[in-house]
Amino acid sequence: MATAIAIARVKDLFASVMLTGIYSLLSAVFFVLMDAVDVAFTEASVGAGISTILMLSTLTLTGQYEDPTRHKTRTALVVVLVTGALLIFGTADMPRFGDPQTPVQTHVGPHYLEKSYEEIHVPNVVTSVLASYRGFDTFGETVVIFAAGIGVLSLLGFSGRKEKTTISVSAPMYQHRILRVVGKVLIPPILLFALYVQFHGDFGPGGGFQAGVIFAAAIILYTMLFGRQAAEEVIKLSWVRLLAAVGVMLYGSVGLISFLNGKNFLDYSALAADAVSGQHYGILLVELGVGITVTAVMILVFFSFAGRVDKKAEENE
């Protein structure tokens, strides 16, 4: 909370981005305390990782300091305080925190905890709810990511293919030899870890989304160390774009297969003779789809921003 207030106060945008990162990490810790390990994992990788990187790239493009003038501070304070007070009043009869007898704990939740193991046979209940019970939400989520990717692409596009500059600006850490060596050593394990997270989602925290983010992080790291052009040699961006689509379609086609087999959309029990192993296959494939899309979109988004940074740098020269 103090961090949040600090964000509000600090005028140096760079500092506030850092604070946002810290804030995210703190909330991740909070989520762990609240038993939401999956969520914490995601919040850490997204809030502290991806969004920080994106904000930093934006700031390199736009300038670091904000205009200190404030609009309507007094009105804002009054309005916010009044609303806050009203809302706190509104919490008065909320179910008590941690109470096992609240409707949330007694109505639908127990079904997942009690039945999911026999129905799906996956220990991580979050995964089974995510990928199977509410698989359609997750499908939607994948599409949201995809849509965001499309949006960023349409706004920023790939930068035009320029002749190779020796040192790309978007490789800010190129000069640090040690970092490069360490990076080279680190990247393969990160990729491996990503794959582990991808396929271990059934048993522990993790799954397609987190894996995708980590995977993308590895590639982003590579780019930072070796420059965008080098990275683009390793991965072709138009292919990445296709991959983003393929991820969504993989998810969708799992659903389609199930209803070609006469079951409802995303009913994984149609995938194999045995309903439970069908669920297994289904979750695996679906998580893979999510992972692919997330990786691809994250890379695309990062490259779009990085491309702009490069372009601006070139213009400045």
């Binding site: 939401a36 999956d38 969004s51 939740g109 979050v126 709810v129 989520e141 988004v301």
Partner: peptide
């Protein structure tokens, strides 16, 4: 309860998607 976790996973993703688009 796992359900809120699932929902929030989705919401986080939505959040980052919005932020990315906004930054762009």
């Amino acid at each position: 309860n796992p359900l809120p976790h699932v929902l929030i996973l989705t919401a986080i993703v939505v959040g980052i998607a919005t932020t990315a688009l906004g930054l762009a």
